[in-house]
């Protein structure tokens, strides 16, 4: 087994010279960052992060694909997804009968994504944003109609979409990406 323990010791630091050196180094690095801050702050409402496509954001139902199996409600760890009974008219046969449809309650949802992953027909999918505004708690409890539309994304309307890429020297670097409505 290559994993080994390695005895280490704390480097010595007592003595007037070491202390002096430590002070100078600390101030020097402070001055260095003062002149070259390498910031990565997101100025939030003016800019927003365009998250990747695989981000686990809000969940949208595609009712056309839904086979009413109820797996999503069964696996939901927070009991956010529940099934409601609604009439459904089969386009081929024209028959109407009651079926169970999933709706989500965002008061409870923890965005674990189990429901999306367990859906056998990909009827559920995530949108790649999470900054959505609800006026009240009742509105967070989705209806079957609102669950089928992607929620409104307010920051995309006025903000500039950016994405962070990882850089060797600066850590996170903010770059502008396509998208947004402005």
């Amino acid at each position: 087994m290559p994993v080994e323990f390695a005895e280490k010791t704390v480097p010595p630091g007592r003595g007037i010279f070491k202390r002096f050196k430590g002070n100078i180094e600390a101030i020097a690095i402070g001055v260095k960052y003062f002149f070259d801050p390498k910031r990565s702050t997101l100025i939030y409402p003016k800019e927003y992060i365009k998250l990747r496509e695989n981000y686990r954001g809000f969940i949208v139902l595609n009712a056309k694909k839904c086979i009413n199996c109820g797996s999503c409600a069964r696996i939901c760890p927070a009991a956010a997804m529940k099934l409601i009974r609604r009439p459904y008219t089969d386009p081929k046969t024209g028959k109407t009968r009651m079926k169970l449809w999933p709706v989500i309650n965002y008061n409870r949802c923890i965005f674990c994504g189990y429901c999306v992953d367990v859906c056998p027909t990909e009827a559920l999918h995530h949108v790649n944003y999470h900054d959505v505004v609800f006026d009240n708690m009742e509105e967070m409890d989705q209806t079957l109609e609102s669950f089928q539309q992607a929620p409104e994304h307010p920051t995309a309307k006025e903000g500039i979409p950016v994405r962070y890429i990882i850089d060797e020297e600066k850590g996170l670097v903010k770059v502008r990406v396509e998208g947004g409505e402005q």
């Binding site: 402070g30 960052y33 003062f34 801050p37 390498k38 910031r39 990565s40 702050t41 100025i43």
Partner: peptide
């Protein structure tokens, strides 16, 4: 502002 610069932030804005 100084603390923000050294700490790679923007500070009051």
């Amino acid at each position: 502002k100084t603390a923000a610069r050294v700490q790679r932030r923007i500070g009051p804005y």
